[in-house]
């Protein structure tokens, strides 16, 4: 127990990294009733950094990334995004949130709107774009995710993989600085996983700051700079993919990898 506790404090990112810190999380604690979901989380995310979060079910991965855009609110600790404290007024928080895109496990597209309308709603009503500008932008990103030809369809007319790509395009239409992904491929049929991962790889190549909860270890190896391993609401390991996969430090990470790579 003492051994894992000493590991609980993640080693700080190397001082040499010149990139700006865009997300700072300090001493974050959150409970659901008596259940302690997040324990003393400290984390810096730098601009353009690609971070994969993994860990067993219930370890608090979703809760952690949902705290970053205030879908969940932690009762203790600080989160700063681009130097704005998220605990400030809701107005400022909303502004910060609009710089953060999020993609959910179950897509959460608006079923009563066409693909195009899904993508133009927020840019028009939050950013004040005209319909024409918003549609242009939507088509640009729909094209990027390879789905422009479906712009007039309703979400229910698309496959899961296509829907998730629309969800990614919808988030990108807000031109976010940071993208959060909560298990973006785990609700998909196996044959559709690759098409979504391809989009994520392309997005990573553009230099987007990404935090992605996923158990796709191939993807983590290929794209991530850092892998965070969570267990019991703590960040147990914070390492490069090579270090994490080849030489996990904690018994819990070893056990987790043995299970997942099997």
């Amino acid at each position: 127990m003492t051994a894992s506790l000493s590991l609980a404090t993640p080693t700080p990112a190397p001082q040499a990294d010149p990139r700006k810190v865009v997300v700072t999380i300090e001493g974050l604690n959150k409970h659901y009733g008596a259940f302690h979901v997040l324990r003393d989380i400290n984390l810096n995310v730098r601009e353009g950094e690609r971070i994969v979060l993994c860990g067993p079910s219930g370890s608090g991965k979703s809760t952690l990334i949902r705290c970053i855009n205030r879908l969940e609110i932690a009762e203790q600790g600080n989160i700063r995004v681009n130097d704005t404290d998220l605990s400030l007024t809701t107005r400022q928080a909303a502004e910060v949130r609009s710089e953060i895109g999020m993609v959910f496990q179950h897509f959460n597209l608006f079923p009563h709107m066409s693909v195009l309308d899904n993508c133009t709603l927020a840019p028009m009503s939050v950013r004040g774009l005209s319909r024409k500008e918003a549609e242009e932008r939507a088509r640009f990103y729909l094209n990027k995710v390879g789905i422009e030809s479906q712009a007039g369809k309703y979400p229910s007319q698309l496959s899961g993989g296509q829907q998730q790509r629309v969800a990614i395009a919808r988030a990108l239409c807000m031109k976010p600085k940071i993208m959060l992904f909560d298990e973006p491929t785990s609700a998909l049929d196996p044959e559709m996983v690759a098409e979504v991962l391809d989009v994520l790889v392309k997005l990573a190549d553009t230099g987007m700051t990404m935090l992605c909860v996923t158990h796709e270890m191939g993807f983590a190896r290929q794209v991530a700079e850092r892998v965070l391993f969570l267990d019991g609401g703590q960040i147990i390991e914070d390492a490069s993919p090579e270090a994490f996969f080849n030489n996990p430090q904690s018994a819990r990470a070893k056990g987790f990898l043995a299970q997942i790579l099997h």
Binding site: R70, L71, S98, L121, A122
Partner: peptide, 13 residues
């Protein structure tokens, strides 16, 4: 509930 969350994540009013 995911609909409310998606709307929030897009910072819709």
């Amino acid at each position: 509930p995911g609909q409310y969350e998606a709307a929030k994540a897009l910072s819709l009013k």
